[in-house]
Design a protein around this nucleic acid. Structure first.
Length: 279
DNA sequence: CGCCAGGCGGGAC
DNA sequence: GTCCCGCATGGC
């Protein structure tokens, strides 16, 4: 059993894992089980301590970005009463540093679906095509590699109830599998170039591209716009009702600055509160 | 049952 | 460039 300190009052494991940025972690009582790097991790939080039944500290610190100055980020985006309320209710939420391929594939699958459904699709896909890992609490499955997806029969992929997303995933998996250095190449590009490259992939539009830039490549300035964010921006901020994607995303970027992506994630996490008319 | 979901591709204009 | 539509499937 390892334990190590997290920044006091500036990390919430529960909010970070359950806010809908990642889809594969499973909660069992006070414990969360998931994968960090190459290891299956069992982890829980007690106050300002993180307890881990397995796994080394450094990959966990990196995965949760525990060395990032969250307090400074929150102060920099705390620019109006709406985001101020969201920060108050979601303090401790951190943007996870995700694996690029898993993030890309997950958000292709996530298009026009709800979060419980997304989790199910990704679980089916992992159990069908991912490498099994035996643990003391049962079998866990790795997220399928692009090679595993690309070389599988489309009919089998369809069985994971991905619907029309099956073809997009399969085609994009093939492209990624052909280029082993894909993630490094994208990481080295300026944000706009990286976004263009991502959007050239099947099933990747502006929203998926921005999610991948934010969650896998740590481009904290991007402001992904889904139906909830569009609703919040229209309801809580200026009311140009039918504004296109890039206009809303640009407004978020301009309003919240270089950590607009963090503001977006706090607004998304607080979406029920913000859209139920109580602000 | 009907409505909605972390949108996208393909066309029209 | 923007607008519009169809879309598979499951959750609620």
């Amino acid at each position: 059993m390892h334990q190590f300190a997290v920044p006091s009052g500036l990390f919430s494991l529960d909010l970070t894992l359950s806010c809908g940025q990642v889809f594969r972690w499973e909660r069992q009582g006070d414990w969360w089980q998931g994968i960090v790097g190459n290891d299956v991790i069992c982890i829980r939080q007690k106050g300002d301590l993180l307890l881990s039944a397995s796994g080394r500290e450094e990959p966990i610190r990196s995965y949760f970005q525990l060395d990032l100055d969250l307090d400074g980020i929150l102060r920099s985006i705390d620019r109006d009463p709406v985001i101020h309320g969201a920060i108050g209710r979601c303090r401790g939420l951190r943007i996870i540093r995700q694996d690029p391929w898993e993030c890309l594939a997950s958000y292709i699958i996530a298009t026009y679906a709800n979060i419980p459904g997304i989790k199910k699709k990704i679980r089916l896909l992992s159990e069908s095509f991912g490498e099994p890992l035996e643990t003391e609490t049962g079998t866990y499955y790795r997220f399928p590699s692009p090679e595993a997806i690309a070389s599988s029969d489309l009919c089998d992929i369809r069985k994971c109830s991905l619907g029309y997303r099956s073809e997009y995933l399969c085609e994009t998996a093939g492209v990624i599998a052909e280029e082993p250095g894909w993630a490094d190449r994208i990481a080295a590009l300026p944000c706009g170039e990286a976004r263009k490259e991502l959007m050239a992939l099947k099933g990747v539009g502006p929203k998926v591209a921005d999610c991948v830039l934010l969650f896998a490549f740590a481009r904290y300035e991007v402001f992904p716009v889904d139906v909830w964010i569009a609703r919040i921006m229209q309801q809580c901020y200026s009311p140009p009702a039918s504004a296109g994607y890039n206009r809303i995303a640009g407004e978020g970027r301009a309003r919240f600055g270089e950590y607009a992506g963090y503001a977006q994630e706090y607004l998304f996490c607080d979406r029920q509160h913000l859209t139920s008319g109580s602000s």
